[in-house]
Structures are given as structure tokens and as C-alpha cells.
Write a protein that binds this DNA or RNA. Structure first.
Lengths: 132, 132
DNA sequence: ATGAATGCAAACAATTTGCAACGGC
DNA sequence: GCCGTTGCAAATTGTTTGCATTCAT
């Protein structure tokens, strides 16, 4: 875990810290434009990529193909509806023991994990049954 | 869980069944071209989308932005290296209890879940330390 | 002064959409 | 004959890359 960031990387980390939530690269680009000085979109992507390799930032890719970035440890898991796309955060997480074991059995240095449930939310179930 | 498929959907399900592994839409398109008659790429996407809504197929989106599709229940979880992209399948999965509970507490009809660990594989760790 | 970091615009790749043709009921 | 399904090509979107410029040391 490196702690030597470029100027851009440092700014991005600062923004992510203050947001305390996952954000897309595009929105991060806009956020930076609002805050202080703009940062080129390409630089945003390059910085996020670097931060990811350093184990500072994690990405979760949405079904739409766009990725949401956040500081590792700020992430939550989600319950996502395949129909309307609504995403409900959940708190529990039963995988930490497994993570420990994997680190050892595969000599893999785990930075973070993602856990996501997909299905139909209550509203969409109601709509479905109404339509049939 | 509908069981009435269009011709294309049925063919796709058949191929996924025989593959018994996750595959990208593009590769599925090629696979169909080889097997019997080709199927338009757009149709492949449209069918996969429909199958996803029906709860027959699940998708896991790679960090590269492309999605891998598989029949629900055929999926495995993975340990993925953020550096080289190598993906190691793992067998254990400690989330089924949680899944049960979520179904009830959120009235959410869960079709499937994804669980993925990200970090550095052993080889990449070695290369890193060699270069420093 | 030199190599890394940045911005801009062009390039890419996966996916989606519009629309005309087709096929089953 | 009608409506949903399909194929093709064009459009869209998120992301990446090439290259000339700027910055930090």
C-alpha cells in the first residue's frame, strides 16, 4: 500500500474520502470540476487505475458496464434489482473468515471483496403480478 | 421463473447448459455461429437480457467492462488479481444463510449472488518485490 | 534537464437501438 | 393478417490511447 500519490491521485483520494460513498469516474470528473480545478477525464481514469493497483481504491462494475469507485473499506454490499436497477445497501457480511483462509491457501494478497445479490425487489414483484 | 423461451433464447440456454461455464456475449455469438446457424449479435444481447429478467441467466461483469453470462447455479466465485487479471475459481461460499434472511427482511426475491475477491496473486507479488 | 504526469481529441469495444423483414399463431 | 422476434447497420456510452505540453525534482 503505497502512500506517495501524484497531485491528481491525492485530490481524488480527498474527494472520495469526503464523499464517503461509491462514485462513477464520470461523476468524479464533474465533482472535481465543481470543487477546485477541473481534472482531465483521462487523468481521472488513469489515477483511479493507479489507485486500484496500489490497493487504495476499489471498483464495482454495474450491470450497465459503468464502474463505481470508492476507498477500500468504505464499501458496502448490495441487493440489486435486475428489473429496475435499484440498489439497496446491506450491512452484514459473512465472508471475513473465508477471506483469511483464501489469503493463506492461495498466497493471495486480498485487497477487498465484492458481494452482491441480484433479484427482484418488492415493487417490481407487485408490478409483475398486477400485469398477469 | 418462466419456462417459455423464444427460439433464440432456447438455443442460448442449450449452449450455456452444454458449456457449463460463464461466457461473454461475443463469444456466445461465435459459438452459435460454429454450432448450427448463426444468431445476430443484437439478438444474443436481447435474449440474454430477457433470460436475466426471467431469472434463468446471471451475469458477472469483469473489470474490463465486458460481462460473462451463465445459467444461474452454474456460477462459481472468484479470486481475481487486480494486476494481471487472472481469475481463480473458489468453491466455498458462506452466504446462503444471509441470502435467506435478506429475502425475508427486504421482501426481495433473490435470483443469485456474486462474490469476488480482489487483490494480488502470488506471481505478481513476486514480480513486485523483484522490481524494488 | 529528464522522466513522469496531464490534457485534449481521436480511437476503441461492448452494448443498445431503429427499423425493415420474417415467422408463428 | 397481426404481433412479437430477428438481423443488420448505425448510434451510444464508458473507457483507453497517442501525442504534445507541463510539472516536479
Amino acid at each position: 500500500m503505497k502512500t506517495q500519490y501524484t497531485r491528481s491521485q491525492a485530490r481524488i483520494v480527498r474527494v472520495l474520502k469526503s464523499l464517503n460513498a461509491a462514485i462513477s469516474a464520470q461523476d468524479l470528473y464533474l465533482e472535481l470540476k465543481n470543487r477546485e480545478q477541473p481534472l482531465g477525464l483521462a487523468t481521472v481514469y488513469r489515477s483511479l487505475e493507479a489507485l486500484k493497483l496500489q490497493g487504495t481504491v476499489q471498483a464495482r462494475t454495474l450491470p450497465t458496464g459503468e464502474s463505481l469507485y470508492s476507498l477500500i473499506s468504505q464499501d458496502q454490499h448490495h441487493l440489486t434489482c435486475v428489473n429496475c436497477g435499484q440498489s439497496i445497501p446491506i450491512d452484514e457480511c459473512p465472508v471475513h473468515n473465508l477471506e483469511e483462509r483464501l489469503q493463506q491457501s492461495h498466497r493471495f494478497q486480498v485487497y477487498y471483496h465484492t458481494l452482491e445479490f441480484f433479484g427482484r425487489c418488492y415493487q417490481c414483484q407487485l408490478i409483475d403480478s398486477a400485469n398477469s
